[in-house]
Every structure is written in C-alpha cells, then in structure tokens.
Simulated scan of single mutants.
Amino acid sequence: MKRWFKTWHLKNIILVTLIGIVCGLIFWLMDPLYSLVTALLTPVGLAPFAGATLLGFWTMAGPLALLVLRRPGAGLLAEFFGAAVEMLLGGIWGAATLVSGLIQGSGSELGFALTGYRRYDWLGISCSVITTTIVTFGWELIKQDYAGFGFWMLVAMFLVSLLSVFLFSGLLPKSIANLLQRSHLLD
C-alpha cells in the first residue's frame, strides 16, 4: 500500500480529479437522454435497452484515467469522482450513483489488472471493455432485477452493453489518450 502512494504525485491527483469532473458533467448531461430513450423504448417493451445502449457513456472515466495516468486506482477514482459530480448536479439516480461509480470503476480496473497494469494498448483496453461490461451488467442484473427476463433478452442486452462499452469506454478513451500523447500535453 505504501508503494502505491509513492507512485502518485500531485499532478496525478489533479489530473484524475479533472477527468472525473469532466466525465461527471458528461454523465449528468446523459441523464435526460437516458430518460428520452427510455420513454421511446417503453411502448414497445424494450425500456431496459436504454441503459444498455448508453452504458458506455457512464463507464468512460475509468478507462480514460487509466490510459492517461497508467496508475492502478486511477480508473476507480475517476469513476467515483465522476459519479459524485453527477450526483451533486442532481443526477436522476441520486446517491445510488456513487455505488454505480465504484462498481463501474472496479470493472475498468479489473481489465487492466489482468494485464498486470502493463498493457495500455488494445489488449489492455479490450480486457477493460470485457470486464467492465461483465461487472456492470452483473450489477444491473441484480439492481434492476433482470432475472425475470428471458435468456435471449439477456443475451441481447449484454451484447448491446458490450458494444456500447466498446465504443464509448474503449474506442473513445483510447482515441483521446492517443491524441493527448501525440500533443505532448501531459509531458
């Protein structure tokens, strides 16, 4: 534990906080879109797909922080800070957002932990996408009581979640991190 703290510097703490704040604003801005998509899908019985479709937006802070900072714990902190910002701005899920932030951040961390926090390339981000989807979908399965849905509905929701997380928590953060590295802004 002591070694973990030695690798963190003030600039790392500031950067993970900034990532959390910016992503928290994005999370909060996504709340009305989630409500709209839910309202559109409810008449056809597909309301749960609203969360699956937009899931990647709420899980992007963790992979982005991990790709930029390359420090264990950055994903968990960024997701938690983002969730806190969303909650404080009046997000629709209230304090439950903090629990979701911790779970989503844990999913992001787990993917990079599988590579020993050594691979910040497509292998690392792919592992993070898969673990984030599994952990978050598992949490939603319990929280939203998806156990009553049919098998194929669950499979479809998982695949939509996986695609959303790949696009918005895999491809987008990887692109942003690459742009930041090429700009030498973080040197």
Results as ranks from 00 to 15, higher is better:
Ala50Val: 14
Ala50Arg: 15
Ala50Thr: 14
Gly51His: 11
Gly51Ser: 14
Gly51Arg: 08
Gly51Glu: 09
Gly51Asp: 07
Ala52Phe: 08
Ala52Tyr: 01
Ala52Thr: 12
Ala52Arg: 05
Ala52Asn: 04
Thr53Phe: 09
Thr53Met: 11
Thr53His: 00
Thr53Asp: 01
Thr53Glu: 06
Thr53Arg: 00
Thr53Tyr: 01
Leu54Tyr: 11
Leu54Ser: 10
Leu54His: 13
Leu55Trp: 07
Leu55Tyr: 03
Leu55Arg: 05
Leu55Asp: 06
Leu55His: 08
Leu55Met: 14
Gly56His: 06
Gly56Glu: 10
Gly56Ser: 09
Phe57Ile: 14
Phe57Ser: 06
Phe57Cys: 13
Trp58Met: 09
Trp58Arg: 08
Thr59Val: 13
Thr59Cys: 11
Thr59Ala: 08
Met60Cys: 08
Met60Asn: 05
Met60Val: 06
Met60Phe: 11
Met60Pro: 04
Met60Arg: 01
Ala61Val: 05
Ala61Arg: 01
Ala61Ser: 11
Ala61Phe: 04
Ala61Tyr: 02
Ala61Ile: 02
Ala61Trp: 00
Gly62Arg: 01
Gly62Ile: 02
Gly62Ala: 13
Pro63Glu: 00
Pro63Gly: 01
Pro63Thr: 00
Leu64Gln: 04
Leu64Ala: 04
Leu64Gly: 02
Leu64Glu: 03
Leu64Tyr: 03
Leu64Pro: 03
Ala65Gln: 06
Ala65Asn: 09
Ala65His: 08
Ala65Val: 12
Leu66Cys: 14
Leu66Arg: 09
Leu66Gly: 13
Leu66Ser: 15
Leu67Tyr: 00
Val68His: 05
Val68Glu: 01
Val68Asp: 01
Leu69Asp: 10
Leu69Val: 13
Arg71Ser: 13
Arg71Leu: 15
Arg71Met: 14
Pro72Asp: 07
Pro72Phe: 02
Pro72Thr: 02
Pro72Tyr: 03
Pro72Ala: 06
Pro72Trp: 05
Pro72Arg: 04
Gly73Trp: 00
Gly73Thr: 03
Gly73Ala: 03
Gly73Glu: 01
Ala74Lys: 06
Ala74Pro: 09
Gly75Asn: 08
Gly75Ala: 13
Gly75Ser: 12
Gly75Trp: 06
Leu76Ser: 08
Leu77His: 00
Leu77Gly: 00
Ala78Pro: 08
Ala78Arg: 05
Ala78Gly: 11
Glu79Ser: 14
Glu79Ile: 03
Glu79Cys: 14
Glu79Trp: 04
Phe80Tyr: 13
Phe80Asn: 07
Phe81Asn: 00
Phe81His: 03
Gly82Lys: 06
Gly82Asp: 05
Gly82Met: 08
Gly82Ala: 10
Ala83His: 07
Ala83Glu: 00
Ala83Tyr: 04
Ala84Trp: 08
Ala84Ile: 12
Ala84His: 05
Ala84Cys: 12
Val85Thr: 09
Val85Gly: 07
Val85Ile: 15
Glu86Val: 03
Glu86Lys: 10
Glu86Leu: 06
Glu86Met: 10
Glu86His: 07
Glu86Pro: 10
Met87Tyr: 14
Met87Gln: 15
Met87His: 14
